[in-house]
Design a protein around this nucleic acid. Structure first.
Length: 668
DNA sequence: GAGCACTGC
C-alpha cells in the first residue's frame, strides 16, 4: 500500500472501507454524532490486514482538515499514523510530518521506536527535537517528533508552521498549557492554511469537545466543506488498544482514611491474590513515606507471610538511583509494591503491575489570581485519571484495580475531566508568548477552555509593570521582545536583562539556573539535620539567591571546600546582584511588620500576610525588607528564596509600579 | 522551625 493516494492529486474518491473479514472496520455515512469508522487493532492482528487501519486513516486525513483519533493506550496510533502518512506521500515536496508529545521522554522513545520500525537511523528520515537536543537534518528528516512546547517556540520564527503538511498532537486530552495554546493557534493557522491537516489524538472523554472546537463553519452540517472540497467538520476515528481487561473493585462504604485503607488493601491483595506487582497511587511524599514505613514494618516480620513484600516509594524528589529501584526485577517469591505519586500515571510505566490501588486523590495546583498565590492541594481526581490509573494494571495480563471510593461516588460525583491546567495557573508566560506571536486580543483568543478573566488581567498587569507590555498592551521594544525570546519566567528574564547593565550577568545567570530547577537539594529521608548543616556552610547574609551562588561556586571547586574564602568577593558583588533580582521581582517585595513577634511580613502589593520559609538562610534573621522568588502556601503563606533589600531600590527598579495606585486601564 | 503533584521552553 505504499503507493497509496498522493495527497492533492485528482482521483476518484475511494470507496468506503469494505472489510471482507467480517466488517471489523466500517465507515458510516452520514456519520452518527460525527463519528466515523472503528478500527480494532487487537482483532486486526489476527485476521485484519494492516492496510485496513491505514486505509481509514489516510481516507480521513485526505478529506478532512481535522481528524480526531480516540486511541487507547497501546493502540499504536502514535507510531503507526506518521509512517502511514509518510508512505502516502505527505512528507514530499520538502514538507514534514510533525508529531507532538507533552513530555521529552515520550518524544525520544516514540521517535526511536518509529525509526526502528522503519529501519532507519534516528536523526535521519525520522528525527526529534526537544529542548537542548535537535536530532533532525534539514531536507532529510520527514517525520519529526517534538514536544508541544518546542512547536510553540518554532511558531515565533514561522507563525504559520509552513514546514509542516500534517501536525499530529498526541495526548491532547491531558490538556497541558502548551497543548491548549497550540490547539488554539493551530485553529487560527488552519484558516490561513486550509491545506494543513491536523490529527488530534485524545481520550474518549475529550473527543467531542475537541470536535466542537475545531468545527469551524456551518454548524450542525456534518458535510460542510471548504472551497477545495475539504470537509471542515472534524472526523472522529476510534482505535481500540491492546491492553488487557482490568476488573474494577470499589469499596462498599466511603473510607475515612485513604492512607490506612491503601495499606490494608495492599495487605489484602498480598494475602488473597495471585502473583503480580502492586501499584498504589497516593498524593505526595509525606503520605508515601508513611505508607512505605508501615508496610516495611509488616514485611520485616520474617515469620509472617508479609515478608514477601518488597515495598518501594516513587516520587520525583527521589534521587535517580532510588527511582531506578522500581524497575529492578522482582526477586522470586517476592511481590513488589510501588507506592507512587501521579508520576506513575503518565510519566513512568511499570511493566509488571497487575494490581492498582487508587486513592482517588492527587495533588493539584490551583492559582488564585486575586491574591496571586498558587496553592498545591489534595483534590479528587477525574474519571479520566481514574481510568488511566486502572489501565496501569492491564499491561502484563488481565489485572485488578481497587478504588478506595464507592461506585456511587465514581458514577455520580467524580468529575468527568480534570480542570485544564490553563484554568488553574499563572498565565504570565502564556500571555507573553501569545503577544510575541502577534495575538493582540488575548481576551478574545479562541481557547479550548477560557482561562479566568481575572488571571488574564493579572498577567497583563504584571507584564505591564515589568515594562514588557506598553499601555496599549503591545510588546515593548526592545525589552518586551527580548524577554519573550528567553524561555523562562518573564520575571527571571527581566532580571537577566537587568544584570547586563549592572555587570553581574555571570552571577545572575547562575542564580536564574538554580531558580529554574525544583530544588538543588536532594531529599534524603531522616537526614534533614545534615542538610541544614551543609546549607549553613554556604549561607550568605544577603539571602537565599546569593547562597545558591555560593553553592554553585563550591560545586565548581568541588573537593576544596576548606579553602573557600570568597566572602569579601561575594559581598562586593552582592549589592548589584540583588538589584538585578529586583529588576524582575520588585513586585514580590514584603515588609516586616514593625511589632511582629513571629516574623510576620506583609506584601507591598496587597498586604498579604506572609512569612519567611524555615528553609531560608534568612529565617529568624527577619530583615526589614525582603523580596521573595515564590510563595508556597500551607498553613501559612511562606516566602521561598528570599533576599534582603533596601526599600529605596524598589523605587529605583520600578518607579511606576511603586507610585501607581491603579494599573493602567488601557491594558484591559 | 517546616516541607517539595507533574511537566515544559
Amino acid at each position: 500500500m505504499s503507493q497509496f493516494w498522493k495527497p492533492g492529486t485528482d482521483r476518484p474518491r475511494p470507496c468506503l472501507v469494505d472489510d471482507e473479514e467480517g466488517g471489523v472496520l466500517f465507515y458510516s455515512t452520514p456519520p452518527p454524532s460525527s463519528s466515523y469508522g472503528y478500527a480494532n487493532l487487537e482483532k486486526q492482528r489476527q485476521r485484519l490486514p494492516v492496510f485496513k487501519y491505514r486505509t481509514a486513516i489516510l481516507y480521513l486525513v485526505e478529506y478532512h482538515s481535522t481528524v480526531i483519533i480516540v486511541g487507547e493506550t497501546g493502540s499504536g496510533k502514535t507510531t503507526q499514523i506518521p509512517q502511514y502518512l509518510k508512505e502516502a506521500g505527505w512528507a514530499e515536496g520538502g514538507r514534514l510530518i510533525a508529531c507532538t508529545q507533552p513530555r521529552r521522554l515520550a518524544v525520544q522513545s516514540v521517535a526511536s521506536r518509529v525509526a526502528e520500525e522503519m529501519g532507519v537511523k534516528i536523526g535521519e528520515e525520522v528525527g526529534y527535537t526537544i529542548r537542548f537536543e535537535d536530532k533532525t537534518v534539514q531536507g532529510v528528516t520527514k517525520i519529526k517528533f517534538l514536544t508541544d512546547g518546542v512547536l510553540l517556540r518554532e511558531m515565533m520564527d514561522d507563525p504559520l508552521l509552513t514546514k509542516y503538511s500534517v501536525i499530529m498532537v498526541d495526548e491532547a486530552h491531558e490538556r497541558s498549557i502548551s497543548t491548549d495554546m497550540l490547539l488554539g493557534l493551530l485553529k487560527k493557522i488552519q484558516r490561513r492554511r486550509p491545506e494543513l491537516r491536523l490529527i488530534i489524538s485524545s481520550a474518549t472523554i475529550e473527543a467531542e469537545s475537541m470536535s466542537n472546537f475545531f468545527r469551524t463553519r456551518k454548524k450542525n452540517d456534518g458535510h460542510a466543506t471548504d472551497d477545495n472540497g475539504l470537509k471542515t467538520e472534524p472526523s472522529i476515528l476510534s482505535v481500540e488498544g491492546k491492553g488487557y481487561p482490568v476488573e474494577i473493585h470499589y469499596v462498599q462504604e466511603p473510607v475515612s482514611d485513604y492512607l490506612q485503607s491503601a495499606v490494608d488493601t495492599v495487605l489484602l491483595i498480598h494475602e488473597k491474590e495471585a502473583v503480580g506487582d502492586v501499584l498504589v497511587f497516593l498524593t505526595g511524599q509525606e503520605e508515601i513515606d508513611a505508607a512505605v514505613q508501615i508496610l516495611v514494618e509488616k514485611a520485616s516480620d520474617k515469620t509472617s507471610h508479609f515478608s514477601g513484600l518488597l515495598v518501594l516509594p516513587l516520587y520525583s524528589g527521589l534521587s535517580r538511583s532510588d527511582q531506578d529501584l522500581i524497575f529492578s526485577q522482582t526477586p522470586k517469591g517476592k511481590r513488589k509494591v510501588v507506592i507512587s505519586t501521579n508520576i506513575a500515571e503518565t510519566s513512568l510505566t511499570l511493566e509488571g503491575v497487575v494490581y492498582v490501588v487508587d486513592s482517588g486523590f492527587s495533588k493539584q495546583r490551583f492559582y488564585n489570581p486575586i491574591s496571586d498565590i498558587e496553592n498545591l492541594v489534595v483534590a479528587p481526581i477525574s474519571k479520566a485519571s481514574a481510568k488511566q490509573r486502572a489501565g496501569r494494571a492491564g499491561r502484563l495480563r488481565a489485572g485488578k484495580c481497587f478504588r478506595l471510593y464507592t461506585e456511587d461516588y465514581f458514577v455520580k460525583e467524580m468529575p468527568a475531566e480534570g480542570i485544564p491546567e490553563m484554568q488553574r495557573s499563572n498565565l504570565v508566560s502564556s500571555v507573553i508568548q501569545l503577544k510575541a506571536l502577534g495575538i493582540d486580543n488575548i481576551l478574545g483568543f479562541d481557547w479550548l477552555a477560557s482561562p479566568p478573566p481575572e488571571a488574564m488581567i493579572r498577567a497583563l498587569e504584571v507584564l505591564y509593570s515589568l515594562g514588557i507590555l506598553d499601555e496599549d498592551a503591545k510588546l515593548t521594544t526592545p525589552s518586551g521582545f527580548q524577554v519573550a525570546e528567553i524561555p523562562l519566567d518573564p520575571m527571571v528574564s527581566k532580571m537577566i536583562i537587568a544584570a547586563d547593565t549592572l555587570g553581574c550577568s555571570e552571577e545572575i545567570l547562575t542564580i536564574a539556573a538554580v531558580l529554574s530547577v525544583q530544588s538543588i537539594w536532594v531529599s534524603v529521608r531522616g537526614k534533614h539535620k545534615g542538610l541544614d548543616e551543609v546549607k549553613l556552610r554556604f549561607a550568605a547574609a544577603e539571602g537565599d539567591h546569593v547562597t545558591h551562588l555560593n553553592v554553585y561556586k563550591g560545586f565548581l571547586q568541588s573537593g576544596k571546600s576548606s579553602q573557600w574564602c570568597y566572602k569579601n568577593y561575594i559581598n562586593y558583588h552582592a549589592m548589584t546582584i540583588r538589584k538585578a533580582i529586583l529588576a524582575g521581582f520588585f513586585s514580590h517585595a514584603s515588609q516586616l511588620e514593625e511589632y511582629s513577634q513571629n516574623g510576620m511580613y506583609k506584601t507591598v502589593r496587597n498586604s498579604q500576610e506572609v512569612y519567611i520559609h524555615p528553609s531560608s538562610v534568612l529565617f529568624r534573621v527577619n530583615p526589614k525588607w525582603v523580596v521573595y522568588h515564590s510563595l508556597v502556601s500551607t498553613d501559612k503563606h511562606y516566602m521561598h528564596n528570599v533576599i534582603a533589600i533596601d526599600p529605596s531600590w524598589l523605587i529605583e527598579a520600578a518607579p511606576d509600579f511603586y507610585q501607581l495606585k491603579r494599573p493602567n486601564p488601557a491594558i484591559f
